[in-house]
Design a binder for these strands. Sequence first.
DNA 1: CTCAAGACTGTACAGAGTGTTCACTGTTTC
DNA 2: GAAACAGTGAACACTCTGTACAGTCTTGAG
Lengths: 155, 155
Amino acid sequence: MTLDALDVTLLDLFTAEPRIGALEASRRLGIARGTVTARLDRLERSGVITSWGPHLDPAALGHPVTAFLTLEIRQGAGHDVVGEHLATIPEVLEVCTITGAGDLWCRVVARSNADLQTVIDRALGHPGIVRSSTVIALATQVPYRVLPLVTSSSG
Amino acid sequence: MTLDALDVTLLDLFTAEPRIGALEASRRLGIARGTVTARLDRLERSGVITSWGPHLDPAALGHPVTAFLTLEIRQGAGHDVVGEHLATIPEVLEVCTITGAGDLWCRVVARSNADLQTVIDRALGHPGIVRSSTVIALATQVPYRVLPLVTSSSG
DNA sequence: CTCAAGACTGTACAGAGTGTTCACTGTTTC
DNA sequence: GAAACAGTGAACACTCTGTACAGTCTTGAG
């Protein structure tokens, strides 16, 4: 959908200070409160805002180690079957199918490098997986963000 | 930090229905309102909850294509310099350094496969990058989630 | 055993925000 | 010109929040 400057400003503001509420936001931006709620409703209905839930930090939950697995699936075994297997592992935070040599990509976290081995073993413990490779994330250069995209999408 | 069953229940509840507020949550769980706010404060102070900001969907913002780039950095060029370059590109949502053959990993989004080429060209437009490989994400098997980790961390 | 600290409960109050409605004003579109 | 749409400003009742306080319960230290 198309965002105008006010949508971008609202997303900026609520990302920076999520708890201000519609009334305070309307005061800050010099617009009517009804406009704020109408815009936010629209952004939510259109799917741009998927939720207002809390953002959780795996590191603060005791899982500071992040790794990316690339899995190759045996011919005949469905991606879905392996995906469902991976979904049962709490340390697997994200899985998607990809182009190229690998077939599945997933993000996993662990309590330590030793624990990572355990997690990987569990993830690979499915007969549909024939090969895998692991890279460990060392440092975050750019933390996950979407906001710059919002700004650039509106222009 | 250590989470008990109540913390997990609260995170579950507020992830499912973020807008209910402390009073309604206290009614649902049969506990005092003060306990809800105290627990949420503690979760926020300890870093488990990093923010209450809106979750934005790149696809709904017109960028349905996701790809992962693996970059190899020229000896002598710092990761940081390349990282800063990547940070200036709105379509680059996340960057981290990794072990293995590649040196930097990043998640990028684009409006289309054609647009992805443009984004990649811009990302690679830095003299510090000597090699790169791209995989395109086709389908999401497990959408990003942290909640299962919360549940398993408490036990 | 006893005491102190910490967490939770239940209550209360004032202040503030929310959901909702309505009349009015521009702007755009046909 | 009429209709549709988005925004304004005001008003209402209702609800939630921040804050405070006294009481209960559990736990660990002396």
